[in-house]
Amino acid sequence: MSGLVVVTAAGFGSLLALLLLLAVAFAAGAVGAALGTGGGLFLVPALVLLFDVDIHLAVAASLISVIATSSASASFGVESGLTNVRLAMFLETGTAIGGLAGAIIAVTVLAARSNVLAFVFVPVVLLAALLMASSRDRDIDPDPPPDALARRLRLEGEYIGPATGIHRSYRVTHTRLGLVFAGLAGIASGLLGIGGGIFKVPAMNGAMNVPLRVAAATSTFMIGVTAAAGALVYLFAGDVVLALVAPVVLAVFVGTIVGRRYGHTAPISRLKLLFIAVLVVSAFLMVARGVGVLA
C-alpha cells in the first residue's frame, strides 16, 4: 500500500499520486458538502491508507481542509438566515476547548504512538457510520422543557422551511447536555482531524430541539472554529506538510463548491449508503494496517 508516495523529502512524488490526491480531496469536499458532514472522516483514512502518510500529519492536513470546507460553505447558511449564530457562539466554547485538548493529547501523549491514534479512530468512525445510518429529521417539540440558559442567551430562532414555505419557530433546550456533546465533538476533532459535524448535528437536532436544517447550517459554521483550535496547534508545531496540504485544500475548495451547487440533485440516500460503506471499509483497513496485516 506504500506505492503512492505523494510527498518525498525532495518535494512531490509521482504525478499519478498527485492526481489521485486531488481526486480524493475533491471527493471529500463534494460529498462532505452534499451531506453536510465535512470530508475529514474520509480524508484521514485515505491519506493514511492510500498515500502512507503518518496519521499525525494526516490529521493536521485534514483539520486545515475542514476549515476550508467550513469557510467556503458556512457563508451561505449565514446569509440565508438558516444558521443560528448565537447557538454557534455558545457551543463554540465547548468545541474550541475540546479541539485544543484533543490536539494537545495528540502532539504530547500520543506523539510517538501513531498506532494508538489509528485505533482510536476506528470506534469513532464506526460510531459516525451508525449515526449516519440512523439519522432522521426529528420533529421539533413546540413546547420543550424550559431552559434558563437558553432563555438568557436568547438561543431561540425561526426559519421558513425551504420545501414547505411554512414559518417555524423553535426553542432550544438542554443547553448543558448540548455543551457536553460539543466538548466531546471538539476532542474528536483535535485528536482525529474531523470537523465533528457528524456528532454536533444529531446532538443539536436530537437533544437540543433544533430543526435538522438549522442544525446542519449551524454545525457547518461552527466546525471552522472547532478545527482551528486544533489546527493552530499543528500548524505552529510544524506538523502541516505544505506539499500535502496545499493541493488538498485547493481540491477541497473546488469540491465544496461543486457539492453545494449540485448537492441537492444528488441521490442523498445512495450517497449516505456510500458514505457508510466507505467508513466501515476504512475502519476495517485501519485495523488491518494497525495489526500488521497490511504493511
Partner: peptide
C-alpha cells in the same frame, strides 16, 4: 444552493 430558507433573523444583519 440547497438552503432557500430565509428567516427573520434575530441577530443583527450587520454582524451576519
Amino acid at each position: 444552493m440547497s438552503e432557500l430558507a430565509t428567516s427573520v433573523a434575530r441577530d443583527s444583519p450587520t454582524m451576519r
